[in-house]
Design a binder for these strands. Sequence first.
DNA 1: AAACCGGGGCA
DNA 2: TGCCCAGGTTT
Length: 357
Amino acid sequence: MSEMAENAGENLAEQRRDLLAWFDEQQRDLPWRRSREPYPVWVSEVMLQQTRVETARPYFESFIESFPSVEALASADVEAVLGKWSGLGYYQRARRLHAAARLIVAAGGSFPTTVEEWLELPGVGRYTAAAIASIVLAVREPAIDGNVMRVVARLLALKESPKKSAGWRAIEAKARELLDFDRPGDSNQAIMEIGAAICRPRRPRCSICPLEKDCLAAAAGEPERYPAAGRKAPVLRQRRRVAVVESGGSVLLFRRPGDSARMAGLWELPWIDGEPKEGSEEAFGQRYGGRWKVGPQRGRVRHGVTNRSFQIEVVEAKLSSDNEVAEGPEAGWFRRSDLAGVPTTGLVGKVLRLLDT
DNA sequence: AAACCGGGGCA
DNA sequence: TGCCCAGGTTT
């Protein structure tokens, strides 16, 4: 072995040690880190898809309490699962988690034992499969999420965008090198945690980073320059009017069709699209049935998803007769205090919170 | 590869 | 308001 290659190998071994030493000392106490059982690790990884740790934490504890095992999850009604997920967003994750639980139980109740088997489950992509397999099975597979992408792009001072295949391959190779041979799951979690706590998108705290001496971006004094930005899609703006119909302490919600492309089967507030103008009473009537009387505006909320931004006007409304809405989509009256276990869209909670203030 | 998924939190 | 987050799936 040449001297240079030998040094590189020693540096790598040192980086792995530094990473684990930092993790052993600084890792957060998170509920899903209390065991390495596949079920809680799997649930946590799905909840953490596109979701911050502190947001997911209370949902995880409540979810595990309601569905303590894969058997409990599989035998639960999908409605109950969605109800516990309500407020977390991206509800397809809950549907896929539930469907995967039924697949696992139907196949005998044992969890996958390889990355490839995990990948076959709905809702488990290459990130999640690698994360679970490294934590539960000690498989040496890099779990590359947005945090890892940023940390490694900075370590390498990577010129290419990680969203291009060349850039992504470079990140994957480096991330793999950083994994300990005995504790790859802790290595993966350590890089992610550094991304969240130290190697932040803006104002990274390089001086307390265990990898600072190995980081080319830090050495160049411009860590924020990485990762190289890809093309950003323009945000589409759209106006919407949402109606709150209250009667006897209950609010009127409608159920989205079960085969709907988005938010299938969730309960939502009645809405119509377009510029707010006269005539929206007819539009509500056409969409939901009944004769509508639209009252005063109660406020505005913004509801953004990925590359879409809804500007929503919240109005009060009344119906001349409750049973007239039976013509439209499935309708239901819900007491505000009972909504906790009901699978509603995120917007329902947002609008009702607005009315409380 | 790119679009889409119709979330949520924070500066 | 823009940006980011422990991404997955479809086209």
